[in-house]
Nucleic acid binder design. Sequence first.
DNA 1: TTGATAGTGAAGCTTATGCTTCACTATTTC
DNA 2: GAAATAGTGAAGCATAAGCTTCACTATCAA
Lengths: 110, 110
Amino acid sequence: MKRGHSVDRVFHALGDPTRRAILDRLVHAPTTVTRLAEGLGITLTAVGQHLQILEECALVRTEKLGRVRTCSIQYLGFDVLEQWIRDHRSLWARRLDRLADVLAEPDERK
Amino acid sequence: MKRGHSVDRVFHALGDPTRRAILDRLVHAPTTVTRLAEGLGITLTAVGQHLQILEECALVRTEKLGRVRTCSIQYLGFDVLEQWIRDHRSLWARRLDRLADVLAEPDERK
DNA sequence: TTGATAGTGAAGCTTATGCTTCACTATTTC
DNA sequence: GAAATAGTGAAGCATAAGCTTCACTATCAA
């Protein structure tokens, strides 16, 4: 599927438990592809596929030195996520305010 | 797929753009299944399926009165999401602190 | 009571997703 | 240089996800 917008990609990336497990791991310390694969009990290839997705939405950054690729968490993607929540919270709050206004209006019933 | 934990379900639910579109709609005001279907250009059935998922992870609450089901946003699910981010941020911060400690240590090189 | 309206349930279709295997390329290390 | 190590790429596979259609139920309205 074509994932256009960044919000879209971040949520899609985080929708998978294995990818969140990778982040759980990286949040403690950077690590290599092989170590991730060992910890998760999946192949190197599978990890590589997840990493690609995580990199595309700026949740992870990787760097290859020699033959070993080191992965670390990147907070850019998380910011997108937080912004989304903030936006929704503010709309939600505004709606509650409107509701409060209505309720606060003088009782016009007879 | 069996979705066990609530974090798991919330992220999975939010991973789909149509479901986020539903929330975008509901954050402004509660609405009915039919209206949602019209706005999204999909069938009532499809909306019903999405609603079930959104309800299961406490992102939406619905109530059927007569023959019409009214859907409204529910913030319980969002709390799970925010908590997850907070947890990761704090771990991330701790890691940066450790790094800072290391960097702050008196230079022992000769 | 007849007809329209609002939604539900089951089945099936198509595409996406997560994973594996196998072959292959770089790097180290002995 | 030979053997081990770290990772990549292409192909394929099973399952899941998102939809639709069609048949059906429940409610409201004339």
